[in-house]
Computed example of a mutant assay.
Amino acid sequence: MTEPAPRRPARLSRWLAVALLALLALPGCTGTPPHGDELYASARQANLLFKEAVATLLVHVSDGSWQVQEYGDIPVDCHRGYAFSLHRTTYEGWTTDADGPTTADRLGDWLTARGWTTRPPARHADGEVVVEASDPALDVATLTIEIRGGAGRADAIGVGATSTCFDGDPAELTAILYPGWPDHPVAHEPLPVGELAGATPIFGFTEDGEPR
């Protein structure tokens, strides 16, 4: 079930505005990685801004729910701290009004017009077309759009993205997000298996297993 398309851009704009204000309110960089509450606060805002950048593309592709393959809250190691990685796919039966190559060209042009660095679409022998892009200004190190066609129509799109690196210890952050990790993580509500592109994401759980 989808929400009316005209309301979506305003929702995303409000989300971005709140995230930016919270980010500006954080303590200034001291040259040392954040820890504890400061690490959680800075990581939450980094995660919000990263996901908002990707969500803008998701809404452009499909103003509805997306299947969650990789939620994007677990920090992964990078060369100087941690990063986030997410992956979303359209639901089975979803179609667009053009074939795979045309859809790829349109999405590449749309990203380029908004300041992203894009590569020419790569067309594979199995019919899949892949668009790769990045925008470090939005903290998106890599963005990959996979378009799979069927009977001349693009009938599935997968969007994967990895953020730039942020200062902080990924193991410490994971233990904050999932109390008791790695030995005895608390039981918690499951992460969504489907999510509207503009939904405010969950970022960690309390000691009682409630989403934060």
Rank of each mutant, 00 (worst) to 15 (best):
G158S: 13
H60M: 07
N47I: 05
R119A: 13
L21R: 04
G204W: 02
G36L: 06
P120R: 05
A175K: 12
R11E: 08
E3A: 09
E52R: 07
P179L: 03
L86Q: 14
D77C: 08
I74W: 14
G150H: 14
P179H: 03
T142W: 13
V193H: 09
A98S: 11
A171F: 09
R8Y: 02
T95R: 12
A175L: 08
P170A: 01
T174S: 13
L111G: 00
D139H: 15
V68N: 15
V68R: 15
A197S: 11
C29G: 11
D155W: 02
G158Q: 01
A10R: 12
L12C: 04
T102I: 11
F50K: 01
R88M: 11
A55R: 12
E52M: 08
F84W: 13
A161Y: 00
R14F: 07
A137L: 14
H35D: 07
A98D: 02
R212S: 02
H124K: 03
D139C: 08
V159C: 00
S163T: 04
D155L: 06
A43I: 01
D97M: 01
H79D: 15
A43P: 00
R8L: 15
V131R: 08
Q67C: 14
V18W: 02
S42N: 06
R8D: 03
A122C: 00
V68A: 15
G64L: 08
I74V: 15
L20C: 00
Q45P: 03
W66R: 08
T162D: 05
P75R: 13
S13C: 05
G194I: 05
D77I: 12
P34N: 12
D155V: 14
L196G: 14
D97S: 07
A55F: 14
L107F: 14
L39D: 03
A156Y: 01
A156E: 14
R8E: 08
D169H: 09
H124I: 00
G168E: 04
D109G: 06
G108R: 15
L16M: 09
P9K: 00
A22S: 06
I202F: 10
A187T: 09
G158N: 02
W15S: 10
L191F: 09
A10V: 03
S42C: 10
L111H: 01
W94I: 01
Y40M: 04
L191S: 07
P101Y: 07
C29I: 04
L177T: 10
H35L: 04
A83I: 09
L12G: 13
L143K: 12
W116T: 00
T32V: 11
S62Q: 14
A53R: 06
L58Q: 00
T30C: 04
A122F: 02
G127E: 06
A53W: 03
P27D: 00
L20I: 02
L57D: 03
